[in-house]
């Protein structure tokens, strides 16, 4: 499901918000999440999960096409961990 599918889906699931507002609101929310992560802030959405940064050390790597060896500098990458609640919803107990 892509962003536009998501807007249509969310729009069809409720009647309080206009589709154009949903479009803008999703943009604002995702931009804010990105901005917060870029500042190194951790994000905790109760019931859904948390976003944080993970550190990656520099390492030697190879260009798989040419076999050329290059050095990748250390960096941070965004990381998401699903909440227990979401995990349980995706993995219902077999009964």
């Amino acid at each position: 499901m892509t962003r536009s599918d998501l807007i249509h889906w969310i729009s069809s699931e409720q009647k309080d918000f206009l589709q154009s507002d949903i479009d803008m609101a999703i943009r604002v929310v995702l931009d804010y999440l990105s901005e917060s992560l870029a500042l190194g802030q951790r994000i905790e959405v109760r019931g859904f999960g948390s976003f944080s940064l993970k550190y990656r050390t520099s390492r030697r790597a190879r260009n798989p096409k040419t076999g050329e060896s290059i050095t990748l500098t250390s960096k941070y990458i965004p990381y998401f961990k699903a909440s227990k609640a979401l995990f349980r919803r995706m993995n219902p107990p077999h009964t």
Partner: peptide, 22 residues
């Protein structure tokens, strides 16, 4: 509502691709 919808989609086994985000 937004995060609940995302959760519902993942619960149903739908993957979500948000361009620019992830």
């Amino acid at each position: 509502f937004f995060f609940e919808q995302l959760s519902q989609l993942l619960e149903k086994g739908e993957v979500i691709h948000l361009s620019g985000f992830g």
